[in-house]
Design a protein around this nucleic acid. Sequence first.
DNA 1: CTGTGCGGGTTATAGTATTACATAACGCCT
DNA 2: AGGCGTTATGTAATACTATAACCCGCACAG
Lengths: 136, 136
Amino acid sequence: MIDARGLRMTPVRRRTLEILLERHGALGAYEILERLSADGFGHQPPVAYRALDFLVENGLAHRIRRLNAFAACQHPGQEHHAAFLICRLCNAVAEIAADKLRATLIASSAATGFDLERTSIEALGLCPACIESAPA
Amino acid sequence: MIDARGLRMTPVRRRTLEILLERHGALGAYEILERLSADGFGHQPPVAYRALDFLVENGLAHRIRRLNAFAACQHPGQEHHAAFLICRLCNAVAEIAADKLRATLIASSAATGFDLERTSIEALGLCPACIESAPA
DNA sequence: CTGTGCGGGTTATAGTATTACATAACGCCT
DNA sequence: AGGCGTTATGTAATACTATAACCCGCACAG
């Protein structure tokens, strides 16, 4: 049960990822927990949080802090750093590449002596669909 | 009680800002609430959250999502957009300019039809002081 | 004055996340 | 195969963060 990269993709973890993939967009930990427990897994928060931590840690999912939620990664397997565009009306989450942004950020922070390890870049606004349907 | 910009800097709000300024770094809403209530203001969460929302809304403080905390703005009065460098050991928060980053982000997101309104850019890592004291 | 809006106080509750501990499964080594 | 250390899963309990809803009072405009 260990894949090429040394990952242990156990049943809870796999199911958690599937749940995230089924939904396009972000899901809260407790929504995920409901589904997991409906599928026979544990009923307590740590069950969901642990699986989610694992997925995030291994680049299979992202945590969207502004929504206190999680979303499946759109480009798993590729080393990449993402930024998220979050619609304030429909809560849709789009993932865009942020490698350049991150490089800039690393440069700026290095200038202050800070050793940057992880970034989280999120933006709030209106998605194309909501711009259509919501007039000025 | 209305300043040049039309801001109502009431006693709770002023005190909240002072509390943030006294501490270099970020403070949770409940820590702030404790101090406010010790100073004779209300004892309930909305007291703190409302004051903080006001300060954030008016560019006098920032919300640090990764820490679920708030910090006084280092450059109040100036229109600017900030990014935050958060030390994972001591939780110190440094504010750096992010106007360029934001411009890049706006450009990228516009390409997808997204109308970007607000950004939150945070990075986790080690501050200079903790790099010193924590060897590899 | 007096009505209106904003600020601030309260109670109550919703929502998010973690600690701590016990048990079970796995991977590895002999 | 058997035993052992490590990792994963499950549970209970609780901590932490945030918001909703309602009331009152004051400042200001009319």
